[in-house]
Design a protein around this nucleic acid. Structure first.
Lengths: 216, 216
DNA sequence: GTCTATATAGCGATAGAC
DNA sequence: GTCTATCGCTATATAGAC
């Protein structure tokens, strides 16, 4: 196996191990065993365990990061946005997001570990990718508010509400509720329901009888 | 300092350290330093690092767990539920939850670490506390559906949507968006908005023009 | 109840043969 | 490019003095 091939193989393997056990919980020995090589080879390709970790985070979060978000270069989505088909917009976003989360749960685990363990990749994740998403979806919501289609709620609160539904649902599926005791539904079903609940929540019309800030 | 006092002090200190760095990332040495004692004392009170960790998880998740959830013995909440004041119900739940999360972020970090590191406390957390919450709030939603006040959505999807908003918002505040770059609002504001969005989303009336499952 | 000193094992990382 | 052998260090845990 050539140097580059080996390096790639180590990274792929390391993603598996680090995403399972985090940085502190991962030993170079386990990575070596999982890759079927000796520890020494790892340190021939990466100067330190730290450098290996940074490499896989960079690989997953920074480079592959754009692909984690389904809001760029998605034709059906862009068409739905152009014609102001809100339900379709939110449904497509939800379905894509849930699918991604499910097919790449390692990415989610890495991000959570990085955040908890206070790795700077976490900061990068928020500054670049999440900020991009908040702007992208926030702008759409703002436009729809100007159209008079949506109520005047802080667009970023709407984005957070929606992302909350999606990320928390995937988080349950990956971490806590693996055997679906609390709630057992398909991604399709979940995406439909989340989109519809959120959208009804922000569209004009159908208000609760008294808004909270009009109360005593 | 007596034995029990010392034990309690160690636990309090260990909660801080474990919640910051997780199980693998925490060394008994750091706990000892943070408590201002020698390592030997820790092992006089706890047979192993594992036992200390289980002790603090039991302390926070199992015993203190009930207090983490604001849905038992909360009078204003129960009154609001009795008179079917949905907005007040969801607002109170949201406000209480966000307040708890903020004042005890260590609890959230412990839970997340436990889930990622595959500790059994995580399972207990879901089976006991989350299941209780889903039943409690799910039952209320079901009742309101029978009243004809809420649409016929799987109640547990509604609970998940709402919990998603709350937990994900707190998670952002604690982990990723500490300096509130993405969204900077008070708990009060957040609770109001989440409650109103969710409630409009599930109340009868104000439907999006075409539901997703009626489409092509 | 608390300490210092120490045992033992596993960690990240390196040396050097092939 | 890969291995075995090993270094230096730190981890958990214990022994024994005070």
């Amino acid at each position: 196996m050539t140097g580059d091939e080996r390096r790639e193989q180590i990274i792929r393997t390391a993603v598996e191990v680090f995403s399972k056990h985090g940085f502190s919980g991962t030993t170079t020995k386990r990575v070596a065993e999982a890759a079927g090589i000796s520890e020494a080879i790892i340190f021939r390709h990466f100067a330190s365990k730290d450098e290996l970790y940074e490499a896989i985070l960079h690989n997953k979060v920074c480079e592959g990061g754009d692909k984690q978000f389904p809001w760029m270069g998605n034709e059906p989505l862009e068409l739905a946005m152009q014609r102001g088909d809100d339900l379709e917009v939110f449904y497509l976003l939800a379905a894509e997001a849930l699918k991604k989360h499910e097919s790449d749960s390692n990415f989610m685990r890495l991000i959570f570990y990085a955040a908890l363990e206070d790795n700077e990749a976490s900061e990068h994740f928020v500054n670049q990718l999440m900020e991009g998403l908040y702007r992208f979806l926030g702008d759409y919501i703002e436009r729809r508010q100007k159209d008079g289609a949506m109520r005047n709620v802080n667009p970023r609160i709407v984005v957070r509400s929606f992302m909350g539904m999606l990320i928390h649902h995937s988080l349950n599926n990956i971490l806590w509720d693996k055997n679906r005791k609390l709630l057992d539904i398909s991604n399709e079903e979940a995406a439909k329901n989340f989109a519809e609940i959120l959208l009804r929540g922000v569209l004009v019309g159908g208000e609760p009888d008294t808004a909270i800030n009009e109360r005593s």
